[in-house]
């Protein structure tokens, strides 16, 4: 019951009163979708049957495995990074400002730090889901407006010419996992890691850590960098030795459990009063 109340409190203060933060996400999604749609015209591909899967492949294509050879400059996948970094930004401020403000009162009254931490983890889950829901919903609405096909099929020619991507074996299940489940799970895992790091370091350094992990994922192909699992161009759909879906799900779940566990351990000894004094002035004005 107490947890339910805390979650309700976080939904009200951390989501409902911060809905304006989702507007840039919707605008960005529109810009990226329309930009992609326009690029069809530039490449004389307007007669090709564009589907919503093509658009989602564009969002989550990521970066093909990079080999740092002479004269081969590294170009990072800006759309992919934008999507995940904005998600990290969305979940950056609220837990900290809550802990240094009213959160202290909440912890005192509920008499449980663990419940406070659990509710914040749940809040990160909800915020990330909502954020991705905005992306999918906006692309869906724009697809309807621009008469883009909503089928699970996709145009191979558009993929090859615009995304430089030739997918190996594509089944409906693989599409769902690589375009919906793994991006959302990866983002949740990175955001929870960021939330956990927030109990140790300042917020900006936590965001910096998320940015470095995601950026390094685009450069190095290794299962140790979790961002690799959220890129279609690193998956088994694109390359034979690509990232395995099951491995990706296990890695995300492991990171989520590790972050929540480390947070539990840290919050027990966390000096909330000291932080509260320092953050008292900020709380009133932040968010």
């Amino acid at each position: 019951m107490r947890l339910y109340r805390l979650i309700r409190y976080d939904i009200k203060n951390g989501i409902c009163s911060r809905l304006y933060l989702y507007v840039p996400a919707a605008i960005l999604c529109s810009v990226f979708t329309i930009g992609f749609y326009m690029s069809l015209q530039n490449r004389n591909l307007e007669n090709e049957k564009l589907t919503i899967i093509n658009i989602l492949l564009y969002f989550f294509e990521g970066k093909e495995p990079f080999s740092p050879e002479l004269g081969n400059a590294f170009v990072f996948p800006v759309v992919w990074l934008f999507i995940f970094l904005y998600s990290a930004f969305l979940t950056l401020n609220y837990p900290y400002s809550n802990l240094t403000g009213y959160g202290v009162q909440v912890i005192t009254r509920t008499k449980s730090r663990k419940l406070w931490w659990l509710s914040k983890c749940f809040w990160v889950f909800l915020t990330t889901f909502l954020y991705f829901a905005v992306w999918y919903l906006v692309s869906l609405v724009l697809s309807l407006i621009l008469h883009i096909d909503l089928s699970i099929q996709y145009s191979e020619r558009i993929c090859a010419e615009l995304l430089d991507m030739k997918l190996q074996s594509v089944q409906a299940g693989s599409v769902w996992i690589s375009l919906v489940i793994l991006p959302v799970m990866t983002s949740v895992a990175v955001n929870l890691l960021q939330l956990c790091l927030g109990l140790f370091f300042d917020r900006i350094y936590c965001f910096l850590a998320s940015a470095v992990i995601l950026f390094a994922s685009t450069y190095f192909q290794t299962p140790l960098l979790i961002g690799n699992f959220a890129m279609v161009k690193r998956s088994v759909m694109y390359q034979e030795n690509g990232m395995d879906f099951t491995q990706g799900i296990i890695a995300c779940v492991a990171l989520i459990i590790l972050s929540i566990g480390a947070g539990f351990w840290r919050i027990r000894k966390y000096d909330i009063l000291k932080k509260h004094e320092r953050g008292l002035q900020q709380e009133a004005e932040d968010d």
Binding site: V31, F32, G35, S39, V75, F76, V78, V79, L81, F82, L85, Y86, F89, L92, N93, R203, I204, F207, Q282, E285, D286, D287
Partner: peptide, 24 residues
């Protein structure tokens, strides 16, 4: 009023410029 937004605003602005450079 958010200090985090102030710090990260130029970062997202540069990413936006990079997107424009790449695509538009």
């Amino acid at each position: 009023r958010s200090q985090v937004s102030v710090v990260l605003m130029p970062f997202f602005l540069m990413l936006l410029l990079d997107y424009i450079d790449t695509n538009v």
